[in-house]
């Protein structure tokens, strides 16, 4: 494992911890899209089916279990926790995420590494992860104001994507047979979706001002 991959995994983990911190400390999930969180839970559940069939390393197994458990915990909190549920911006979170699920599933039936149950769900999870942030970005755009922890949550998620691209470049150079086109192309699409957010994040950071997205 190279340093970029590790940094990517850690920023991914930090983003989830920041989100959990926001929900537990403020008992509020305002500004957080439940639809994006449900998509991430589905991403992890379908991608890590290999927990039962392939063992890579203790690190991989533990991280997979942490990602599954934390994403389910966040969805549970936003749906079931009485105080947290009240703060959910339901009327702003109207992205039709079922279309994303259907489109990604169709694509995974056509474009996969092998036409098997596990490989189709793996491809599905990669495609779905690439677009899962969309409901969250739409919600932020609509509400305009972004609180600090929510801004940092999306920032760390974007950093995770950026580190994974560096990881692929590194692996492409150092490993003779490295070719993961499905993951790489989807990853680049996913990172590009953050570009706009990053621009405004850095502007606000440079001016030491509150993060605001244009309407």
């Amino acid at each position: 494992m190279n340093i970029f991959r590790f940094a990517g995994d850690m920023t991914h983990l930090i983003s989830i911890l920041v989100l959990l911190l926001k929900i537990y400390a403020t008992k509020s999930c305002s500004g957080i899209s439940l639809k994006t969180q449900e998509l991430y839970a589905l991403v992890f559940l379908t991608r890590y089916l290999d927990l039962f069939t392939d063992f890579i390393s203790v690190y991989n197994t533990v991280m997979k279990l942490v990602f599954i458990a934390s994403s389910l915990a966040i969805v549970w909190c936003m749906r079931m926790h009485r105080a947290v549920r009240r703060t959910y911006d339901k009327e702003l979170d109207t992205f039709r995420h079922y279309f994303l699920i259907a489109a990604c599933f169709l694509l995974s039936l056509i474009l996969n590494e092998k036409f098997t149950f596990q490989e189709i769900f793996w491809a599905f999870s990669i495609y779905l992860e690439a677009v899962a942030i969309l409901p969250q970005l739409v919600l932020l755009q609509r509400s305009g104001n972004v609180d600090n922890l929510t801004g940092q949550y999306v920032f760390f998620l974007g950093a995770y994507r950026a580190f994974y691209i560096l990881n692929w470049i590194y692996r492409y150079i150092t490993e003779p047979h490295f070719s993961r086109w499905i993951a790489c192309v989807s990853g680049i699409v996913q990172t590009a979706l953050y570009a706009d957010f990053f621009y405004y994040y850095f502007i606000s950071w440079k001016n030491n001002a509150k993060l605001q997205l244009p309407a």
């Binding site: 890579i56 991280m63 997979k64 590494e113 092998k114 990881n167």
Partner: peptide, 10 residues
């Protein structure tokens, strides 16, 4: 028929 590589990333 090439086998897919093991998915070793998260």
């Amino acid at each position: 028929d090439p086998q897919p590589e093991v998915h070793d990333e998260l």
